[in-house]
């Protein structure tokens, strides 16, 4: 009934990149995430699915401490990346976010040129010693974002002038440019049309070669198409976490089954 990817799970490297244990998130008095424990693997696309308001985006934003920018948000429990607790006092969120890049729901290019959009991250992190190196980084990021051919002749044009799908790939290239190890994507295709969505999905599959990718999505088909692992969230709880094929063919929890068959959500 679902178009399950035929490629069988790669058995090669499946070392754990992110390990979350008993994570609780509160917005003021509201307990938004309850007791979530999850292990996210390298070179894998992990999908977070669940109905609106189930906490999947909130949990995603915990992984690079984007929730720090919200005053009333409080996070408890441990989230380890390569064994380091990212909520440790000694961890600088700025350094963390360079390592854990993020792509957002709506494409949000800066009101700058395409080149400056990509070069922004490398510049603030001091990744290039000179202009030539920076050019190289920009080109590599744009190629990896699968948008190089479309924009190579107009790198100085404003990023806001691109189409929606191009903008989102630009934002992915921008995130990639800082050489992150983990890429978080918060419903990256929700503002895109089907053709642009297909392009971005293809890109996500390629990115898996180099990064641990975590994607939040509303669309179960999308989760089935792009991910190897799927986590189902419901009302702030992590209901089920398993290989994507397992979740979609043989869910353990009745809530998961209800959701993927369209009875809740």
């Amino acid at each position: 009934m679902y178009d399950i990817p035929h490629q069988i799970q790669e058995t090669a490297v499946t070392d754990v990149k992110i390990k979350a244990k008993d994570v609780q998130v509160y917005y003021g008095d509201n307990h938004a995430i309850k007791d979530v424990s999850v292990e996210i693997e390298n070179n894998t696309v992990t999908a977070f699915i669940g109905p609106s308001g189930c906490g999947k985006s909130t949990f995603l934003r915990c992984l690079n401490r984007m929730n720090d920018t919200i005053d009333i948000c409080r996070v408890e429990g441990d989230i380890l990346i390569d064994g380091d607790d990212i909520y440790d006092k000694r961890v600088d969120p700025v350094q963390l976010r360079a390592k854990v890049g993020m792509v957002f729901q709506k494409p949000n290019p800066f009101p700058k040129s395409i080149y400056d959009n990509i070069a922004y991250g490398p510049r603030i992190h001091g990744m290039a010693r000179n202009k030539a190196e920076l050019d190289e980084i920009v080109e590599r990021a744009l190629r990896r974002g699968a948008i190089w051919d479309e924009v190579k002749d107009r790198l100085q044009a404003p990023g806001t002038g691109l189409s929606g799908g191009q903008q989102q790939r630009l934002c992915i290239a921008r995130a990639v440019a800082t050489e992150p190890e983990v890429l978080l994507m918060d419903e990256p295709c929700s503002a895109l049309d089907p053709i642009a969505t297909a392009q971005v999905e293809e890109l996500i599959d390629e990115l898996r070669q180099n990064y641990a990718v975590v994607i939040v999505t509303h669309s179960m088909q999308q989760a089935a198409r792009v991910s190897q692992k799927t986590a189902f969230f419901h009302l702030g709880n992590l209901v089920e976490y398993d290989d994507t094929s397992e979740i979609f063919t043989n869910p353990e929890d009745s809530r998961t089954e209800s959701y993927i068959t369209g009875r809740i959500g």
């Binding site: 380091d84 961890v91 963390l96 992190h125 001091g126 800082t178 050489e179």
Partner: peptide, 13 residues
Amino acid sequence: MDSAPVQGSLTTV
């Protein structure tokens, strides 16, 4: 990228 700043442990700034 030898100049990439994010290779070290997160706990050391």
